[in-house]
């Protein structure tokens, strides 16, 4: 996670600079290219891939890796989700908001419909508004770059900060934005579900599980439910393996589900 932050965010921006950018916007933006364009779906997609060539290639790579190994990008590399999670660890638990009452996959796909089709349907575009791929890199670069401070002190920047603050830093587990609003998370969770029969995922050994619920308490994406035994929702799980380390019976592991 720290490596992801160092590689993608200011002051180094090692990877964005390889694409001629300095942050996660422009050619590196991984979110714009699949938005349906009112000018034409196919031509809009081609234009979007051309403009955000690095971001679209990155998303393609993420989805392929996820298919075989689970959502490793989200859990181990993503600098944005990673920064949210790390910062949230410094905030006392009693101050955090628990979003786990929300059915995350249902909410996420509802939001995603508007994200992808909002401009096309004339509702309006979400795009960069409230985008954590904008706000967090800008926060990281704000001590060095006046333009970032300019954005963050506008009403739009403040609204973005509040959104990321509530759904990131102040959320239990620090991953509510990832789980509810991130469009890449939506695609990635579908890829995670698609590769379930042949890819590696977090899994529960029902013979060992005693249903104590320790895993459920610490899951940052609230993807574990426990009735008699623990169940992992593969539409939300990212293999951070925190549950594996906390399970007193070593009932949770990472590997192929059907062996």
């Amino acid at each position: 996670m720290l490596l992801g932050i160092a590689l993608f965010l200011s002051p180094l921006s090692v990877i964005p600079q390889a694409a001629g950018e300095v942050n996660m916007c422009g050619a590196v933006c991984p979110r714009m290219f699949f938005i349906l364009s009112p000018k034409g779906i196919a031509s809009g997609f081609v234009d979007g891939v051309r403009a955000a060539w690095f971001g679209s290639a990155l998303v393609g790579l993420i989805l392929i890796v996820t298919l075989f190994f689970g959502r490793l990008w989200c859990s181990h590399v993503c600098p944005i989700g990673g920064a949210s999670e790390l910062l949230s660890r410094g905030i006392p638990e009693r101050l955090k908001i628990n979003f786990s009452i929300i059915n995350a996959p249902a909410f996420r796909y509802g939001y995603f419909i508007v994200f992808v089709a909002g401009a096309f349907l004339g509702i309006g575009s979400i795009a960069c508004k409230f985008c954590n791929f904008r706000v967090i890199p800008f926060l990281a670069g704000a001590p060095f770059v006046p333009a970032y401070r300019t954005y963050l002190t506008t009403s739009m920047g403040i609204a973005g900060l509040v959104t990321i603050g509530l759904s990131g830093f102040l959320a239990k587990g620090g991953r509510a934005y990832c789980n509810l609003l991130c469009p890449i998370g939506v695609l990635d969770s579908l890829s995670n579900r698609l590769g379930l029969t042949f890819g590696k995922r977090m899994k529960v050994d029902k013979d060992k599980c005693i249903g104590c619920g320790e895993c459920k308490k610490i899951c940052p994406t609230w993807s574990i439910s426990v009735s008699e035994k623990a169940e992992i929702d593969q539409l939300s799980c990212m293999p951070c393996r925190i549950c594996e380390s906390k399970c007193p019976k070593e009932a949770i592991s990472y590997g192929k589900i059907k062996e």
Binding site: A106, G110, Y111, I113, V114, M156
Partner: peptide
Amino acid sequence: KTALFVLAGIFTGVMFAGFKVQDY
């Protein structure tokens, strides 16, 4: 419950899409 959360997601998206400010 699932349908309600899908609608909540759509509603949030519509609110975000319609969000405008004067200074930016």
